[in-house]
Simulated scan of single mutants.
Amino acid sequence: MLILRYLLFTLCAAPFYLLAASSVAPSNMVDLGIEIIPTIAINYKHDDNVTNVKNNKQASNLVEIMPALRIQGEKYNNQFSLSYSAKQSLYSDNKASNYTDHKLQADVNRAMNSHHKLAISYQFERNHDAANTGISEGNDQATAPAIFYTQDITLNYRYGSQSSTLTFAPRLSVNNKRYDEGNSNYTPLADFNEYDYGLALYYRLAASVNLLVDISNKVTNYPGNSNAKDSINSLLYSGINWDISGKTQGSVKLGYEKINVTDNRRGSKTNPSWDIGIRWSPKTYSIFNIKASQKITNAITAADRIKENTGSVNWQHAWRYNVSTTLAYQHVNETYQYSAREDNSNSINIALSYQLRYWLTFGLSYEHETKSSSDVRLGYDNNIYGLTSRLVF
């Protein structure tokens, strides 16, 4: 029945393309430089471990419905975009796991002149933690996702042109997270407010190469934890970034991170830190993305701090003009600094995409995740197989 529902959704969505293709954009929209892009993705999948547990696994088929709308435009030196997307997952054999996520984002970029650039972004999300992750981690009886809300406002300013020897880039962001009190595992200890501010300085060595220094402070406040979990993370990086002939772009930042905690019993911690991101395109149709980082993060509910090491590789390759594949691998090591707990997670994602028409794409996907932990309650593995489709109107 569920695969039949998937096929019906795909067939029902097709007429919307015909309607959109026969429409003519209003002249005032064209004059303003506005483009409206609606899309919808409908996927049929099988998840062999819906609740992310080690024993007594539950498998289920599911349908994912993901509509999206993006409005973007450019006028004079202003670029702006407004986007909305949603994701509804419907499980045939475990309806308690059903969820609907929403995301709204607005961006404005303004180049006041060749030296002054300003970017403002706002994002709101209604998202979720899957069962036995996040606030329900370790509870193998949890079957429903935990809903939470986040807001993020980011302000980036840049002074300096492409030919400037020295460029200044101050930034400021404010974000918060709140869990829905209706969650069965609700705790206010996971809610927080965060204030992040910093400054990056770029020294131009050549047309495509810059030395950099990056300084930042992140102040985190937990209203439900009597301020005992509040912290200030300070980061100092130095490094290099580059963009050479479209073949390779990236940055390598190395430095130290120090965290000061309000709870004097836990004291401060200082760790080496790095943030590396490299994009390499040996051919126009083949792209590699390599990332590695080490940073200190806060545990979701406990007062622990986590030293998190992350490494990932992503390869996208177009075999023909309408056939492409994506292969991705990620490893995450989390060492809890005030306990003996250590977690290791590995994930593999494989996707095949076939563009039948310029407006219609079908594909196959496979996701594998495994997690091991010194806490025997927390290890699990799961596999998700999928048939995907996407329409662009």
Rank of each mutant, 00 (worst) to 15 (best):
F9R: 11
A13H: 07
P15D: 03
A20C: 13
S22Y: 07
S23N: 14
V24Q: 12
E35H: 13
E35A: 15
T39S: 15
I40D: 00
I40G: 00
Y44P: 00
D48M: 02
D48S: 05
N49K: 09
N49P: 09
K54W: 11
N55I: 09
Q58L: 14
Q58T: 15
L62H: 04
P67Q: 09
P67V: 08
I71D: 03
I71W: 02
G73A: 13
N78G: 10
S83V: 02
A86H: 05
L90R: 09
D93W: 03
N94K: 13
A96P: 00
H102Y: 12
R110P: 00
R110W: 09
N113C: 06
H116Q: 11
K117E: 04
K117H: 14
S121M: 08
E125V: 10
A131G: 02
N132M: 08
T133M: 02
T154A: 12
L166K: 10
F168W: 15
R171Y: 15
S173H: 01
S173Q: 05
N175Q: 06
K177D: 00
K177N: 03
Y179T: 00
G182R: 12
S184N: 14
S184V: 15
Y186M: 02
P188S: 10
D196S: 06
L201D: 03
A206W: 10
V209Y: 11
N210F: 14
V213L: 12
I215C: 05
N217V: 04
K218F: 02
N221E: 06
D230T: 04
S234L: 04
I244S: 12
E257S: 09
K258Q: 11
I259V: 12
D263K: 01
T270E: 06
N271P: 03
P272G: 10
G277Q: 10
W280K: 02
S286C: 06
F288M: 01
K291A: 11
I296F: 01
A302I: 03
A303E: 06
K307L: 14
T310Y: 05
N314C: 04
Q316E: 11
Y321L: 12
Y329C: 01
V332K: 10
N333P: 05
R341H: 06
R341Q: 11
N344W: 08
I348L: 14
L356R: 12
R357P: 12
W359G: 04
L360E: 04
T361S: 14
S365M: 08
S365G: 15
H368K: 10
Y380D: 00
D381V: 06
N382S: 11
N382G: 09
Y385T: 10
